[in-house]
Write a protein that binds this DNA or RNA. Structure first.
Length: 540
RNA sequence: GCGCGCGUAGCUCAGUUGGAUAGAGCGUCGGCCUCCGGAGCCGAAGGUCGUGGGUUCGAGUCCCGCCGCGCGCACCA
C-alpha cells in the first residue's frame, strides 16, 4: 500500500465517522509548496455542503478522528480555507526505496489495462518520399504511447498503414516517368500533383540501371518503402503490422463497407455520386464517398480500414496523426458509427500533433514539399542522434507546436535536456563503478534507510515514489511529454543530491543507505527513459 | 467566413484534470567550487497567465464574446 492509499483509507474511515456519505472518495494530491506537507486533501471543503458545516470545523474534527499511526503520518495541519496537510515521517518515506529496488525494471508498471488489446497506428506515411520531421514526431509519439500502454498492462499492436492504392501513387509513378524521359534526353515536366524531390531523379536513375523487370510504379513503391523502413530502423521504431490499403480492395473490404453503409440507410445519391449523411454525426456537411466517376474518396477506405481493426479484435484503437488531418476525424467516426457495429462515437481515439518547426543556426529551416526540400528524419538522426531526436519530439505536449532546435539537441552540455538526464543516470552508475559495487546486488532491505534524512535525500526519494502514479496518468491521457518533464525534474534533484552528499567513503550505515538511494534513482531514470525509447548509457 | 488547436517570465515551455504565495530550463546579473566526473553548485531580478465578461468558497485551468498565431475547410489524400 502506498503512502497516499494509506492516508486515504484512514481519511475515509474518519469521514464516515463524522457522517460523510458512503461514497466519499477523498482526493489526495502532492502540494507544490513543500510547506504544505507531503500530501494534502480538500476533503473538508468537499464535505462542507453535505455536512452543512464550515470547512475548517470539519477539517479540525477530521484531524481529531484520524489515527496518525494508521494513516502512516507524523503530523497533520489544517490550513487555508480548509486544506488538510499531511507530513509523512522520514522513515516511512525512505522505506519506499525497498519497493523500487525489488521491483527494479518492473517499477512503474501496472496492470491497469488488464491485458486488453489496443491498436496504435502511427506514421502511416504514403510511400511517395522520405520520412520528414512531422513523421518523426509521430514515430516518437506513437512508439512512446505504445510503450506507455504496455507499461500499464495493455497488449499493444503497433501498426503502420500504407496508402499504396490512391492517386498519389499514380502521381509518384508519373513523376518518375518524367525524370526517366529526361534521362533519355527529352524535356519533360513533373505532372500536376507530382513530386519534385531530388530522390525522384535518383529513383529514375536506379530504375534505368536495374529495374528487375518491374513496372515504374512497383519499383518506386518498393524502393521508397525500403527507404522508409531504413529510416524507421535508424530511429529504433519497430512495427508489428504493416497494413496495405490495396488489400482493402483486393479482399473486397471496400465493397463490403459500401454495401453496409447503403444498408444502414445513411447514404443517398446526388449528382451521380454516393453521399454519406455525416451531418447526422456532427459533421458540418455531408461527404461524398463514391464519386460520380465510380471511384472512392479517401475516407471510404479509411472507414473500411477501421472496420478491419474492430473485426481483428481491437476494441480500442488509437490513431496518431498530424493535425492537418483533423478533418478526417469526424468523417471516419461518422462512417463507423453509421455501421452500428457497436463502436462508441469515440472510436478510434485520435492523438493529433501540431506542426514542427526546425531551427538551425538561429534560423527556421523552410519546408517546401513542392520543391522537395524538407528535413528528413534521417537528417535529424544523423545530425543529433536518435536519443536527442526522440526526446525533443516528446518534450512538448502534442497539441502545441514544436520548435526543434537542432543546435541545442546536438550540443553536449547541460543546456541540452537529454544530456542532462542521461548524465544524471550515468552519475548514479558512476558511483557503483568507482565503488566497484554491482548495482544489482544493492538492496534496501536491512539498510538503515532512516539516515536518509537530508532535505535533498527526502526530495529525491519523494520524486522517485511519484513515478508509478505519473506513468499511470500519462498512459491514461496518452501524454508522454509528462514523462519527459518528470525525468528532467528528477534528474535535477538527482544532480543536486549527488553534488551535495557523497555516497562512498562515509560511515558504513550512511554509505549503505545512500547506495540504496543511488540505486533507486538509477532504476527510475532508466525506466523512464525506456518508456520514451531513449537509451540510458552507463557513462557518457 | 466556418471548424480544430494554441496564446503563461526576454526565449523555449510545464502547470498533478477547479486549489493555497503561478513553476522549470536557457538567457541576464551576482556569488561558490582542492569534491564518487566542473558536462557542477548557490542566489537575485524578471508575470495584468492575450483581452473583456461569467460560473463558485476558489479560475492559468470550466463557459461566452473579442484579438492574435497555426492548421484544415474538394466528387484531393
Amino acid at each position: 500500500m502506498t503512502a497516499a492509499e494509506q492516508i486515504r483509507a484512514e481519511l475515509v474511515r474518519a469521514a464516515r465517522s463524522l457522517g460523510a456519505p458512503e461514497d466519499v472518495d477523498p482526493l489526495l494530491e502532492r502540494p507544490r509548496e513543500t510547506s504544505h506537507g507531503d500530501w494534502a486533501t480538500n476533503l473538508a471543503m468537499v464535505l462542507a455542503k453535505p455536512l452543512r458545516s464550515k470547512p475548517r470545523d470539519i477539517a479540525d474534527r477530521l484531524r481529531e478522528a484520524i489515527d496518525l499511526e494508521r494513516a502512516g503520518v507524523s503530523r497533520i495541519e489544517v490550513a487555508g480555507p480548509g486544506f488538510m496537510n499531511f507530513w509523512l515521517d522520514a522513515g516511512r518515506i525512505a522505506s519506499g526505496l525497498s519497493e523500487i529496488i525489488s521491483a527494479d525494471e518492473r517499477y512503474g508498471q501496472s496492470d491497469a489495462g488488464g491485458g486488453k488489446v489496443v491498436n496504435v497506428e502511427f506514421v502511416s506515411a504514403n510511400p511517395t518520399g522520405p520520412l520528414h520531421v512531422g513523421h518523426g514526431r509521430q514515430a516518437a509519439l506513437g512508439d512512446a504511447i505504445s510503450t506507455l500502454l504496455e507499461t500499464t498492462g495493455w497488449k499493444v499492436t503497433r501498426e503502420f498503414y500504407y496508402n499504396d492504392a490512391g492517386v498519389q501513387i499514380d502521381n509518384l509513378a508519373r513523376s518518375v516517368d518524367a525524370r526517366l524521359s529526361e534521362l533519355d534526353g527529352n524535356s519533360s515536366e513533373i505532372p500536376e500533383g507530382g513530386y519534385h524531390g531530388e530522390y525522384i531523379r535518383e529513383l529514375a536513375e536506379r530504375y534505368k540501371t536495374d529495374n528487375e523487370g518491374m513496372s515504374v510504379r512497383e519499383f518506386a513503391v518498393r524502393e521508397l518503402r525500403r527507404e522508409q523502413d531504413l529510416d524507421l530502423q535508424a530511429f529504433g521504431v519497430r512495427f508489428d503490422k504493416y497494413f496495405l490499403e490495396s488489400s482493402l480492395y483486393t479482399d473486397g473490404m471496400v465493397e463490403e463497407t459500401v454495401r453496409l453503409l447503403i444498408a444502414s440507410g445513411k447514404t443517398y445519391e446526388h449528382d451521380g455520386a454516393l453521399w454519406l449523411r455525416t451531418t447526422d454525426f456532427g459533421d458540418d456537411k455531408d461527404r461524398v464517398m463514391r464519386k460520380s466517376d465510380g471511384t472512392y474518396t479517401y475516407f471510404l477506405p479509411d472507414v473500411a480500414y477501421h472496420v478491419t481493426k474492430w473485426k481483428r479484435g481491437f476494441h480500442r484503437a488509437i490513431d496518431v496523426q498530424g493535425a492537418d488531418h483533423h478533418s478526417t476525424v469526424t468523417r471516419v467516426r461518422a462512417g463507423l458509427k453509421a455501421l452500428e457495429m457497436g463502436m462508441s462515437g469515440e472510436y478510434p481515439e485520435y492523438v493529433l500533433h501540431q506542426m514542427v518547426t526546425v531551427m538551425k543556426h538561429g534560423e527556421e529551416v523552410k519546408i517546401s514539399k513542392r520543391a522537395g526540400s524538407y528535413v528528413t528524419v534521417r537528417d535529424l538522426v544523423n545530425e543529433v542522434g536518435r536519443d536527442a531526436v526522440r526526446y525533443f519530439f516528446l518534450m512538448r505536449k502534442s497539441d502545441s507546436q514544436l520548435i526543434f532546435n537542432v543546435d541545442l539537441a546536438a550540443s553536449q552540455s547541460e543546456e541540452n535536456p537529454i544530456y542532462y538526464i542521461q548524465m544524471a543516470h550515468a552519475r548514479m552508475c558512476g558511483i557503483f563503478r568507482v565503488g566497484e559495487i554491482d548495482p544489482a546486488s544493492v538492496s534496501a532491505d536491512g539498510a538503515p534507510l532512516e539516515v536518509l534524512s537530508e532535505p535533498e535525500e527526502q526530495e529525491l526519494i519523494k520524486a522517485l515514489l511519484d513515478f508509478p502514479a505519473l506513468v499511470e496518468s500519462a498512459a491514461e491521457t496518452l501524454e508522454p511529454h509528462r514523462i519527459a518533464t518528470y525525468l528532467l525534474e528528477t534528474a535535477r534533484v538527482a544532480h543536486l543530491w549527488y553534488h551535495k552528499h557523497h555516497v562512498l567513503e562515509q560511515a558504513e550505515d550512511i554509505t549503505r543507505a545512500r547506495l540504496a538511494l543511488a540505486r533507486g534513482a538509477q532504476i527510475v531514470l532508466r525506466n523512464g527513459m525506456r518508456i520514451l525509447g531513449i537509451t540510458s548509457p552507463e557513462r557518457m
